[in-house]
Amino acid sequence: MALLPLKLCDIPNLITSLRILLVAPFLWLLLQERYGAALLLFVIAGISDALDGFLAKYYGWTSELGGLLDPIADKLLLMGAILALGWLDELPGWLVMLVILRDLMILGGAVAYHLLIERFQAAPLMISKLNTLIQLTLVCTIIIHYGLIALPAWLLIGLIYLTALTTLWSGAAYLWRWGSRAWHRIRRPPPPSHRNPR
């Protein structure tokens, strides 16, 4: 069977797919405590994320598939790293549980809204983007601390509590936005009938 020809507009999706393939070796290296190699793959994944985002926006090479794959790739890498570092006791268990519960709450809320109210359209909040950035910074800092050079304890503790704060804040923000939107949709009166009177 002949392969479909690769188009320029498919390049961002190809880069994203390769980033997904990096998740398994990255996590394996992390669990083996080979932090230098794990950090290298983490940096490559970060560069690829920035690259496919730039190509998609600058050249307009966006697609519905890309809009689906990109957050999946990011979430697999980040959630996998947090779970692995929690397993290695390098992140506190309460923080790992908080991150998982926040994501489960958002996912459950999105599914419920889609099924019960109307089609769900993802629109990341600024606090969610900040939370993701801080989580990435925390993961990178922890890997550097245990694998390359010891960092000050206050930096690690500060990032842990900042991650917890933004995780709670972003979860509450999503709950408020979609809860209030669902409430207004439910309370909205039905449109008037346009049938001709008899």
Rank of each mutant, 00 (worst) to 15 (best):
M1I: 01
A2F: 05
A2M: 08
P5L: 02
L6E: 02
K7I: 00
K7T: 09
L8W: 13
L8V: 00
D10Q: 15
D10E: 15
D10T: 04
I11C: 02
I11F: 10
P12R: 11
N13E: 12
N13F: 05
L14Q: 09
S17E: 05
S17V: 01
I20M: 12
L21T: 04
L22V: 00
P25H: 15
F26E: 05
L30K: 04
E33Y: 05
R34F: 07
F42L: 13
F42N: 08
F42T: 02
G46Q: 14
I47V: 13
D49C: 07
D49I: 04
D49P: 09
G53Q: 14
G53P: 06
G53F: 05
L55R: 09
K57I: 00
K57S: 07
Y58E: 10
Y58K: 15
Y58S: 10
Y59V: 00
Y59W: 15
S63K: 11
L65C: 00
L65W: 10
L69T: 04
D70W: 06
D70V: 01
P71T: 07
D74H: 12
K75G: 05
K75N: 11
L78Y: 08
G80Q: 11
I82S: 06
I82E: 06
A84G: 04
G86S: 09
W87M: 09
D89E: 15
L91R: 11
L91V: 02
P92W: 07
G93M: 10
L95K: 12
V96F: 01
M97G: 07
L98I: 01
I100Q: 09
I100G: 03
I106K: 15
G108Q: 13
H114P: 04
L115K: 15
I117Q: 07
E118L: 03
R119P: 03
A123Y: 04
L125W: 04
I127D: 05
S128Q: 08
K129A: 04
K129N: 13
L130E: 08
L130W: 13
N131D: 05
N131Q: 12
T132G: 08
Q135E: 15
T137P: 01
C140W: 13
T141P: 03
I142E: 08
I142W: 06
I144D: 06
Y146I: 00
Y146V: 04
G147M: 02
A150F: 02
L151N: 13
L151K: 14
L151D: 13
P152H: 11
W154C: 02
L156C: 01
L162S: 13
L162W: 13
T163Y: 07
T166N: 08
T166A: 06
T166W: 08
L168V: 01
W169R: 03
W169G: 00
G171V: 02
A172K: 09
L175D: 03
L175Y: 09
L175W: 12
L175K: 03
L175G: 13
W176Q: 11
W178I: 00
G179W: 11
R181V: 00
A182D: 11
A182W: 09
W183H: 14
W183S: 12
H184N: 14
R185G: 06
R185F: 08
R185Q: 15
I186M: 11
I186C: 03
R187D: 12
R188H: 12
P189T: 07
P189S: 10
P191G: 06
P192L: 08
S193P: 02
H194Y: 10
N196W: 05
P197V: 01
P197C: 01
P197L: 08
